[in-house]
Design a protein around this nucleic acid. Structure first.
Lengths: 130, 130, 130, 130
DNA sequence: GTGGTCTAGACCACC
DNA sequence: GTGGTCTAGACCACG
């Protein structure tokens, strides 16, 4: 379920964070779902338990998952979006970078908007099919 | 002209690359324009010359600038967009991540499309005003 | 009556200890009152009996409750404050940490004293209303 | 300068975080001051570099210190207190626990207020003597 | 069984 | 030189 690219320059723990957040957003993982234990996950993606632990810690800090001592790790049920100003600025910065990159590749505004729209809808579609 | 955030987790050389690409796209830097020498640039932004050197190398690799030995470094004149498949995939991956993040912040599809469109146009506007 | 937060990083047994001590101090639980048996309490707060057991042991160690074999567990009647040096040092250490945290949040001395005073009086008020 | 109690149940990384925050609040460490490198600090307090690293990461997350790649770690200059609601609730909860504990030790309201006030002023005094 | 912490030692990117 | 990441293996508290 979780794809890790060991060659990527993106840290493994970060890839795990991204993947799980994506699955939660897509509805593949739902509030209350149990995640594999640190050790299980470590063996699934053949990484070190510490690495998984770090990913889970980060997800917990972001309020995406919750840890219950001795029980395991679960997707947060009552997730409420927090839109801090700083986070929004950060997002806009990332968007700018992407558009600069897109322009360098000769992609038109229409094309990029189309890609964004499609991506957004792909995620939504998954949610409706639950 | 070039803004560097020493505290950012993004490498300085990468920040330089991004800034220069952005300025070229915006038309602030134009084909044939001369860039400061490695040492000049280093003193301008108070960074290590090695760091500038690495940024210039990267920009050269991406065909954004070219170095003429004994003369200096110039913005490439005959830039032609290269849309390699790999690069496009990479871009789409980045877009997906941004949208996941946006959804986590509770931003609607319309809002995100608006932001993308505005960003795109902001860059275009600069170009027309040259 | 007893609120447990399974998600908290504070051990459940510790939360039970804290809650019961608080209720005794507030006068909600009084000397001689019978506490639920380990199993009852376990089912009340849906926790593992071992966890309750551990909490009760800790409370007994602190002389807050006492267990009479075959009868049950009772709030200690003749509670006399013990102010060991070590315990006082520990308390002062905790106060220091709180004040450091408060200063980091920009809370003034007056404000923090006010909070402390209010908290102290809230607990007292409950006692007088018995 | 930094006192670590290896026997304490408080994690070493947490002790480091607490100590450094305290020193910053007291003015012993000031904005812009350089902290020992991860390896230096590790050898100073004879702990593992990873442990220091974790402490520094946490401090950075709390905006107490800043890391500049390849340079080192510095105390944040422009610290601005952030008083989120959640953090304030957390603080109040801790205060309640301390007061419950104090009452159990037979400490009067006046005594506890005195201790709080003294602690607060001790910290301030250090600041003025810089 | 669960996750949390720590050590030891390694490699890497960055400056 | 700096910090960041990862692995391997260990111990512990908690439930």
């Amino acid at each position: 379920m979780i794809n890790i690219d060991n060659k990527s320059s993106i840290p493994i723990y970060q890839q795990i964070v991204d993947e799980i957040k994506e699955q939660v957003i897509k509805g593949i993982l739902q509030g209350g779902d149990k995640l594999p234990s640190v050790r299980e996950m470590a063996s699934i993606i053949t990484a070190n338990p510490n690495t998984i632990s770090r990913a889970y810690s980060e997800l917990e800090r972001q309020n995406v998952i919750e840890t219950i001592r001795g029980r395991g790790t679960y997707v947060t049920v009552d997730y409420k979006p927090v839109m801090e100003k700083e986070r929004l600025e950060n997002l806009k910065g990332n968007i700018k970078k992407i558009i600069v990159e897109a322009k360098y590749m000769g992609i038109s505004k229409e094309k990029i908007l189309k890609i964004v729209e499609n991506t957004y809808e792909d995620i939504d579609k998954l949610n409706k099919n639950d």
